[in-house]
Design a protein around this nucleic acid. Structure first.
Lengths: 216, 216
DNA sequence: ATCATTGTGGTACGTTCGTATCACGAAACC
DNA sequence: GGTTTCGTGATACGAACGTACCACAATGAT
């Protein structure tokens, strides 16, 4: 047989080709042939590694979620060594906002998959329950942590606020993507809500939630 | 010629057939033939009244938005004669949540259209800017009204809260639709946020935001 | 050295889709 | 009353799609 090939790796390559081309032209407009061309392989190969298109899409979704998870934790890590819960929550929420090409693609495709999951209910359900739940748990955990450090306003329900923030982030994300709102406004809204949950700082430096840039 | 026909009316009929069948099987899976069958007319007729599929989809979106607007104002009206701004805002937000068949279809299709609007940018842009902006203005107006009646907590930014509430409602709506969250939890989240914006009541009757039903 | 297996290419098949074409009956207009 | 125009039906067409099939070369096992 020809060079023994790592199936997992090849599948990942093809799945990422799917993500790229779908990000460009829309998931609904992507065919097996497009994925093959983008990955630089023949149509037959795509068939070989994923027997059916449905399996390709499903694997693509998983890969997308994976990449996004990596992205978010990278952003959170980049926020500093121990930047405090607020900065971490902020980093997490901002990473989810479609502000650059990667996150735009992510948000766009995730929404496409979400639409598919609305009738295939059973089929694509798993990744759609598990991943957002993980995000919710993460934010809830961070808020609880902040709560124990007395950084939050009293009487805050951590899980409820986590749900709210993530829902807001998702909603704002879609608004951004269809061009209804601009990035700064979305960030301002999120920051404002963080301001309401977190106790006001003594200093003034870090949040810049309502400080308009000068020249406007 | 055969019975002179009201084009506008016929177009509406067909567009609503589109909405029905798309709500059942997903917008991406709907073809001209499906719409024709659902409307009880021939394929040719669909072609006749909408020359191209793109125009059919566009008109369908407009019709969908129209119907939704009617639905929301009906719900708001049904909230009572002058139920106060909070009840009106609540009615508006709840009407937007996918809780019954009609609103589920609406939310599902609107999301589908949103995905399409993400690359056709120029094409489907108008309805996607105008309608949410109208909703935002409406909520903002209601909040301002409440503010003048001293019903809000001090220091509330009406527009910013309107944006937040609508974004949350949209995000929660999607979560509901993919089965990630249940209806009561979504309502609770929205109500909680209204509680934070509006001043606490003297009495106890009206809001029922955190009152769990007994037997659950 | 032989043979079974694996990765790969090419291509054909059946379906479905959006659109275009041809045809025709019925009403409105002069 | 003839003719033009409008609404409608049936069907054909070319493209694209997902999938299936066939062939073959390279390699591991025996």
């Amino acid at each position: 047989m020809p060079k023994r090939v790592d199936h997992a790796e090849r599948r990942t390559e093809i799945a990422e080709a799917l993500v790229r081309v779908a990000g460009r032209r829309g998931l609904h407009a992507v065919g097996m042939r497009d994925v093959a061309a983008e990955a630089g392989v023949s149509l037959r190969l795509v068939q070989y590694y994923f027997e059916t298109k449905e399996k390709l899409l499903l694997f693509g979704l998983e890969r997308l979620a994976e990449r996004f998870t990596e992205r978010v934790s990278a952003r959170v890590r980049a926020a500093g060594d121990d930047p405090g819960p607020r900065a971490m929550v902020e980093a997490l929420l901002m990473a989810a906002l479609p502000t650059d090409e990667e996150s735009r693609t992510f948000h766009h495709l995730y929404t496409s998959y979400a639409v598919m999951a609305m009738h295939d209910q059973a089929l694509a359900a798993q990744p759609f329950i598990k991943n957002p739940e993980a995000a919710e748990d993460a934010v809830t955990g961070l808020l609880r942590q902040a709560q124990e450090a007395a950084l939050l306003e009293p009487g805050v329900d951590a899980r409820l606020e986590a749900i709210s923030l993530l829902a807001m982030s998702a909603g704002l994300g879609t608004s951004l993507l269809v061009g209804q709102r601009d990035q700064e406004s979305a960030v301002a809204v999120l920051d404002h809500h963080l301001d309401r949950i977190f106790r006001a700082r003594d200093g003034s430096a870090a949040t810049r939630a309502d400080g308009e840039p000068g020249t406007g």
